[in-house]
Simulated assay, not measured.
Amino acid sequence: MTLLEAAGLTRRVEGRALWSGWSGQVSAGESAALVGPSGSGKSLLLRTLAGLEVVEAGEVCFHGQPQRTWPMPEYRAQVMYLPQRPVFDEGGVLDVLRAPFAFRVHRERRFEVREATRLLTVFGRDETFLARDAATLSGGEGQITALLRALLLEPSVLLLDEATSALDPETVRRAEALLDRWRTDRPGRALVWVSHDPAQRERVAGREWLLLPAGTA
């Protein structure tokens, strides 16, 4: 079953086509890597798939329904983008994790401190991490927090944009294992990775999406 599909996507930046006519899809249960040369717009493409950037030409569909027809909060709750450098509102880690559950789109979900603490143990942290000031987190700690928040919200597709790049090798492996379990734990989930580490892409992705600049043969 195809979860997320793009057809004929084109994006222009300062009058120049960054990519033109790009198409790709990811199916339920799949883990794919988006690869392309530096400057090809991989982050921009992930943000477009997530509904955070305009679709200039072409179409993105989720569960066969065009992105433009979805209520955008509902769409973004299901197709979730994790940036390399997450930014949080003021407060502690617990506040950051709990805050999205107050949004209308997540009204049927309940924030569970016990589940947040359980996930933290995967990364060798305990409940004291929840009291940390989010503004003082290191790059790696911020990535852990963003990843936990996403998993607690249970989307269908996670778009990971160098989302483990600031973690040490052991923690990267723990994150990869956690995401793999999340992907296979329930039907209808998928991962798309952008990673500059070829070894990571080989570990986590079953196949690759190729993104070439417009005009490249």
Rank of each mutant, 00 (worst) to 15 (best):
T216H: 06
A217T: 11
V93R: 06
L119T: 10
L49V: 07
L212S: 14
P198R: 11
L167R: 09
V35E: 15
V172H: 04
Q200M: 12
Q84A: 13
L167S: 08
E170G: 14
L152V: 10
E90M: 11
V87R: 06
L178M: 15
L45V: 12
F129S: 04
S20Y: 02
E59R: 14
D126I: 14
W209V: 05
P73Y: 11
D185H: 06
D197L: 08
W209H: 04
W193R: 01
L120F: 06
L151D: 12
V122D: 01
L191C: 09
P71R: 08
W19T: 07
G92I: 03
A116N: 07
L94P: 00
E176Q: 12
E74S: 14
Q78L: 10
V113R: 15
Q200A: 10
V204K: 05
F88L: 11
L167N: 11
E56P: 04
G91E: 01
F111C: 09
M80S: 09
A166G: 08
L46G: 04
G41N: 12
A57K: 13
P155M: 05
L44W: 12
Q65I: 10
T164W: 12
L158C: 09
R104I: 00
S40P: 00
L52D: 10
L120R: 07
E56F: 02
R203T: 10
V79N: 09
V122C: 10
R183F: 08
G15R: 14
P100Y: 04
F88G: 13
S138C: 00
P73M: 05
A205L: 01
S27T: 11
V35H: 02
Q84H: 08
E141M: 01
A134Y: 06
S138R: 08
I144S: 02
L210I: 11
P169V: 15
L34F: 13
G124W: 13
F62L: 05
D161N: 07
H106G: 00
L45Q: 03
M1C: 00
L130H: 12
V93P: 10
D197K: 02
W182V: 09
E74N: 03
R125V: 07
A28S: 15
A217C: 00
A28E: 15
T10L: 04
E90W: 03
T2E: 04
L9V: 07
L94M: 11
A177L: 13
L46K: 04
L45N: 07
T48V: 06
V26P: 00
E30H: 03
E115L: 09
R98K: 13
H106P: 02
D89W: 08
V79E: 03
G124H: 07
E14H: 14
R114Q: 15
